[in-house]
Simulated assay, not measured.
Amino acid sequence: MAKRILVVEDNDLNRKLFCDVLKSQGYVVEPVADGHVALQRAREFVPNLIIMDIQLADVSGVELIEQAKRDPILRPIPVLAVTAYAGKGDEDRIRDAGAEGYLAKPVSIGPFMAAVKGLVERTV
């Protein structure tokens, strides 16, 4: 059975790129542009991985990760955080929120897929 990935990304081009690459690798993908509905969509879709943009338009990806990790249904789902604003201490702050993976944008396909596969293979 194909693994399921929720992609939370408000930038149309990045969201399409992530989804296209993941689909080409056989994953079932659910794109989400609005961070406000991300966690509800995650509960409905029940993904094996959540890819979370940190700089969403009107909600912090870090806050969404923290909320997901407090939710008994979403807590076991690994989160791969992606951000264009990688500053000193950001990775620690994002991992402290509960993200199991972290990538700085621009994301290269090789490291992106390695991170995805590493996190998806951990789930059953």
Score class of each variant (00 low, 15 high):
Ala2Asp: 06
Lys3Thr: 04
Lys3Glu: 11
Lys3Trp: 01
Lys3Ile: 01
Arg4Val: 04
Leu6Ala: 02
Val8Tyr: 02
Val8Glu: 08
Val8Ile: 10
Glu9Pro: 09
Asp10Gln: 10
Asn11Pro: 04
Asn11Ile: 09
Asp12His: 09
Asp12Arg: 10
Asp12Asn: 07
Leu13Trp: 14
Leu13Lys: 12
Leu13His: 14
Leu13Val: 15
Arg15Tyr: 02
Lys16Gly: 02
Leu17Ile: 15
Leu17Asp: 02
Phe18Ile: 03
Val21Asn: 15
Ser24Asn: 13
Ser24Gly: 12
Ser24Thr: 08
Gln25Val: 04
Gly26Met: 11
Gly26Arg: 08
Val28Ile: 12
Val28Asp: 11
Val28Trp: 08
Val28Ser: 08
Val29Cys: 05
Val29Ser: 04
Val29Asn: 05
Val29Tyr: 00
Glu30Gly: 03
Pro31Trp: 02
Pro31Arg: 00
Pro31Thr: 01
Val32Phe: 01
Val32Tyr: 08
Val32Arg: 08
Asp34His: 06
Gly35Ile: 02
Gly35Asp: 14
Gly35Ala: 11
Gly35Lys: 08
Val37His: 09
Ala38Arg: 06
Ala38Asp: 03
Ala38Cys: 10
Leu39Lys: 01
Leu39Phe: 00
Arg41Ser: 14
Arg41Cys: 12
Arg41Pro: 11
Ala42His: 10
Ala42Met: 11
Arg43Asn: 12
Arg43Ala: 08
Arg43Asp: 06
Glu44Met: 14
Phe45Ala: 07
Phe45Ser: 13
Val46Trp: 12
Pro47Lys: 04
Ile50Asn: 05
Ile50Gly: 03
Ile51Met: 12
Met52Leu: 05
Met52Gly: 01
Ile54Leu: 11
Gln55Pro: 06
Leu56Asp: 07
Leu56Tyr: 03
Asp58Lys: 14
Asp58Ile: 08
Ser60Asn: 11
Ser60Val: 00
Ser60Thr: 05
Gly61His: 00
Glu63Cys: 03
Ile65Asp: 08
Glu66Phe: 05
Gln67Trp: 12
Gln67Lys: 11
Ala68Thr: 07
Arg70His: 11
Asp71Cys: 01
Pro72Asp: 11
Pro72Val: 00
Ile73Pro: 09
Ile73Glu: 15
Leu74Ala: 01
Leu74Cys: 11
Leu74Gln: 09
Leu74Glu: 04
Arg75Ile: 14
Arg75Lys: 15
Arg75Leu: 12
Val79Gly: 07
Val79Pro: 00
Thr83Ile: 03
Thr83Lys: 07
Thr83Asp: 11
Ala84Tyr: 13
Ala84Lys: 10
Ala84Glu: 10
Tyr85Asp: 11
Ala86Ile: 05
Ala86Asn: 13
Ala86Leu: 05
Ala86Met: 04
Gly87Trp: 10
Asp90Arg: 10
Asp90Glu: 15
Asp90Cys: 10
Asp92Ile: 15
Asp92Ser: 14
Asp92Arg: 15
Arg93Met: 13
Ile94Val: 15
Asp96Tyr: 09
Gly98Val: 02
Gly98Thr: 02
Tyr102Gly: 09
Leu103Trp: 12
Leu103Pro: 05
Ala104His: 07
Ala104Gly: 13
Lys105Gly: 06
Lys105Cys: 13
Lys105Ala: 06
Pro106Ser: 14
Val107Ser: 13
Val107Asn: 14
Ser108Leu: 15
Pro111Lys: 03
Pro111Phe: 07
Phe112Glu: 12
Ala115Gln: 05
Lys117His: 06
Gly118Lys: 04
Leu119Thr: 00
Glu121Ile: 02
Arg122Val: 00
Arg122Asp: 03
Arg122Gly: 02
Thr123Cys: 00
Thr123Met: 05
Val124Lys: 03
